[in-house]
Deep mutational scan, measured.
Amino acid sequence: DETGKELVLVLYDYQEKSPREVTIKKGDILTLLNSTNKDWWKIEVNDRQGFVPAAYLKKLD
């Protein structure tokens, strides 16, 4: 059920640097789980959840 889920576009590649982070690729469109922290957003990638720098993402309307 995708209702109410926010999507984000990945602006730059990011390689995870800790187990709490996930790797993302430029151009991916992913589900945003939590954006309350202005610097690190929690997203879902391939059934994995983790954090990436918010500056690497853009919210889609």
Rank of each mutant, 00 (worst) to 15 (best):
K59E: 05
L7Q: 10
Q15V: 14
E44C: 11
K38T: 10
K25N: 08
G4T: 14
E6A: 11
E16A: 15
G4N: 12
V22L: 09
D47N: 13
G4V: 14
V8N: 00
Y14Q: 00
N37Q: 08
T23H: 03
D28F: 07
D61F: 10
T36P: 04
N37D: 15
V10P: 00
E44P: 00
E6Q: 15
V8E: 00
S35T: 09
Y56T: 10
P19Q: 09
W41I: 02
V45E: 03
I24W: 01
P53L: 03
T31C: 10
N34S: 12
D39R: 13
L60Y: 08
R20L: 14
I43T: 02
K17C: 11
K26G: 06
N46S: 12
L33R: 04
T23S: 15
K58A: 10
W40F: 06
K38W: 06
P19A: 12
Q15H: 15
T23I: 03
S18W: 07
Y56F: 11
T36V: 10
E21T: 06
K42D: 02
D13P: 06
L11D: 01
K17N: 10
W41T: 01
K42V: 13
V8D: 00
G4F: 14
L11A: 03
F51D: 04
D13V: 02
G50Q: 04
D47M: 11
A54E: 04
Y56P: 01
E6P: 08
D13W: 03
R20N: 14
K59A: 07
D39L: 12
K25G: 05
V52E: 00
Q15T: 15
I43Q: 00
W41D: 00
F51H: 05
R20T: 11
P53N: 02
K26R: 10
A54T: 05
Y12P: 00
A54G: 05
L30M: 05
W41N: 01
I29H: 04
L7T: 09
T36Y: 09
Q49H: 09
L30C: 14
T3A: 14
K42S: 06
D28W: 15
N34E: 15
S18Q: 09
Y12K: 15
T3H: 14
K26P: 03
T36N: 12
K26L: 04
A54F: 01
L32S: 02
K5L: 12
